[in-house]
Design a protein around this nucleic acid. Structure first.
Lengths: 205, 205
DNA sequence: TGTACATCAGTGAACGCGCGTTCACTGATGTAC
DNA sequence: TGTACATCAGTGAACGCGCGTTCACTGATGTAC
């Protein structure tokens, strides 16, 4: 917004924003360097002042996504307050909320095929959000009798999988697959049943 | 295998097979008409004798996948024998088994973005496999006290979501996301905990 | 305050490439007589 | 059984296109004096 004219002022972020929008609308492979540049009001060649190439552009989108996601998850977890159970359930909700609020980021992170190995920052940011869920699971699992307690990393993987599945199958505009229920309800009830199976919720709740 | 020479003999299926292999190796957008033709030992133009174009080729892969998948699911369900519970669990395992055994088909079906609306046969085949799981869920849900019974379509959606999530996150070669557990174990335990949450498995089992 | 200059974010034209698709054709195959 | 012919699955060359990327350049900006 600030500057105008020959110098854009904030082209790097403008390109990221354009890419996010394209990727949200047309899928993980539906963006091109040329079109992102066009939407930012700039020549394709200008992109190369800020990014090494196409791959680097989508990787930056994924990176920003993981950072937002990590913040959101940590905020939802809130160090386990008011209770381990409430905090855990909040992280599950945060997953879906993120996917709905930042669909472009979500696609860049989980569907674009960006390599985590090729980018250390990206790998670290991705590790972080996974860590929050795992911590939430570990804290919660202390309420399970030790002999029938699954590893925390296993049950966080279950929740991660169900959340991801709900997003992919029912929350995104996949043509032809009408959602039978609101995704939020689906995830909420699914996690609820799962937690009851772990003995963490009374059967009558 | 039968014929050789100028006429291929079974080019249509050879093109489908080549596409499946490419899609398995290089992802949902990693195949081209030209390369599929090349792998089938044929000129790109020959593809148009058998398919309307690129989209039709990948759609045929998805269609064949849904048919195999539907057969597999029905066989696993086995009309609810030996018990509703065992049959239901078998369909869950069948989902993952299919994804592992037919990765190319899986990608074509669930990741390629083929439109279900544009192809009635495809929509029907896809409906069928979903129907098997839903029937299994309905049969099983009769063992739940009526007042605390979730709709069968909801709990089949939960299982579908978890299965899909496990496949996407832990069973496919996503670079950098090492699976903490064998996907089969993850899904088996996840479904087990979920079913316990529904009161369908004794807490001690 | 005014001028000279270094910096560097942008331009615009061009590139080579591989894509999906078309078209007139060719030659192997199966059938009618 | 042998010949003429229709069929149609394949060829090979060509197309227009949009892509990612490069390069020498231009001109706005900020700074040193």
């Amino acid at each position: 917004m600030p500057k105008r004219g020959y110098h854009h002022g904030n082209l790097k972020q403008a390109l990221v924003d354009a890419t996010l929008k394209l990727v949200e609308e047309k899928g993980p492979h539906g963006f091109t360097v040329a079109e992102a540049a066009k939407q930012a009001g700039v020549t394709p060649a200008a992109v190369y002042r800020h990014f090494d190439g196409r791959e680097a552009l989508i990787a930056e989108c994924a990176l920003q996504g993981h950072r937002i996601f990590g913040d959101l998850m940590e905020h939802a977890y809130a160090d386990g307050h008011p209770s381990a159970l409430a905090a855990f359930e909040a992280t599950g909700r945060a997953y879906l909320a993120f996917a709905r609020k930042f669909p472009g980021h979500y696609v860049a992170m989980f569907e674009s095929g960006v390599s985590l190995q090729a980018n250390a920052d990206l790998a670290r940011a991705s590790e972080r959000s996974r860590g929050v869920l795992e911590r939430a699971a570990a804290a919660l699992s202390e309420h399970i009798p030790e002999d029938k307690r699954p590893p925390a990393s296993m049950f966080s993987a279950h929740i991660w999988a169900m959340s991801h599945g709900v997003v992919e199958l029912f929350a995104r505009g996949t043509p032809g697959s009408k959602a039978p229920f609101p995704p939020e309800d689906l995830l909420e009830t699914g996690i609820g049943i799962y937690l009851r199976g772990l003995g963490l919720i009374r059967p009558d709740d």
